[in-house]
Design a protein around this nucleic acid. Sequence first.
DNA 1: TCAACGTTTTTTCTCGAGATTTTTGGCTTT
DNA 2: AAAGCCAAAAATCTCGAGAAAAAACGTTGA
Lengths: 247, 247
Amino acid sequence: MDQLITGDFQANGEAYEPKTLVDGAYRQLRRDIIEGRHAPGTKLRVEHLKDAYEVGAGTLREALALLVSDSLVVAQGQRGFRVAPISLADLEDITRTRVMLESEALRQSIDNGDEAWEGNLVSAFHLLTRAEEKLAGDLDGSVNEWEDRNRVFHETLIGACNSRWIRHFLAILYRQSERYRRISVLNRPVPQDVHEEHEQIFKAVIARDADEACRLLSGHIWRAFHTVSAVPELALESASRKVANGR
Amino acid sequence: MDQLITGDFQANGEAYEPKTLVDGAYRQLRRDIIEGRHAPGTKLRVEHLKDAYEVGAGTLREALALLVSDSLVVAQGQRGFRVAPISLADLEDITRTRVMLESEALRQSIDNGDEAWEGNLVSAFHLLTRAEEKLAGDLDGSVNEWEDRNRVFHETLIGACNSRWIRHFLAILYRQSERYRRISVLNRPVPQDVHEEHEQIFKAVIARDADEACRLLSGHIWRAFHTVSAVPELALESASRKVANGR
DNA sequence: TCAACGTTTTTTCTCGAGATTTTTGGCTTT
DNA sequence: AAAGCCAAAAATCTCGAGAAAAAACGTTGA
């Protein structure tokens, strides 16, 4: 299978070697936006960024256009690109929509999943558990590892869902969520309870109890929302203010 | 409010004046793909298309990148762009996902909608009815008008849904559906029953009967799926074959 | 002090040409 | 005849410079 340039999750977690400069710039930019190095609402000036990412202006423009796919960047005709703004209302919308889609996807996954899928899930859960242990041990740089494995775990949960469109939309929403979560993680580390939540979800899925699994998953996603919304509004407010100022 | 370049529906149905060449090429290309002038699976050669759309190569590339947002175009690293392929399985997935999202959206819309929204809906239904009369009269060029007004009607139905993300996803799915519908319309005109279905949905919504409205809407969308799937598979098959051939 | 206006500066948008990769087509060999 | 290989052709990808638009800034006048 060819390498398609899309925002979807990759089937395997292997390292991805960008085939073109556009693709490389696209991935770097996406990462920098999600991890907050480009603050929400700020302008993305091509002249400035092309040096930072070491590509031509046209190349960078194309990468930015691709990022519009993921709703991480918005384009305003004749006035350039800017990082998609954030707000608490938006996060609530993301959360609600994600709960709806992810519940449906999990249900389908539990229905369709074979033993190979179960195996993948066991593996993903194990790796996530290890990452959570390291996180408690407060090792530096383990946050990125946790983020990766958390993503893979959620991705694997719905991996046997046979609706490509639901998975596509969830990939977009997950990235959006990650952006908000990164902000809240700066102030407060991942709570202890999260591991227990993951474990409960894992057990319910293995037991093929769809109702219980969806109930737990919904609670899990909503709890993440409340964690972020409890963060001093400064982060969200300042972002909005930048947008209001228009620069 | 500024003009954002996104694939979402516009709030008003007014004519849109493209602000940049990229934007213009994007809209023209989108239309040509949806209406089947670029067959599913075919390669989109920049060298060839830049003349047809009268823009530079870089500009066209950027427009193509924007079309990836809508999943109407897929990019393969180092091997250019091509029109997103179609298949019956894909249409079924689109339909199922759309039913789920559109039901939820309609429910929210019925809950939230004020009288202004009701007014818009009455207007949209009236215009659609007129278009359907013309269609029965077999006037040429009325298909495009019907498509427009059908889109506006569905758009208005969920217009009072306050989830921006659901509306965003539905806009994408609607465009995909339209693509399939255009193929089936070539062989068979819009069935008579469709008008009656629209009327029933309209009445249920005005009566604020969410359950009944969703039931009717789901049936309506699924019926469209069955209409397309009844079409001689030739259109879908040939498209798939082109993809398999890789050119 | 404030508002309006015209100039300067910055930034976006666009194009054409060159380098790299993929694809095509023909040729040889088994 | 089929498979493999090499050269030619086409297409993609990339860059830098120039035109058009928007934003910033200082000046003038009330």
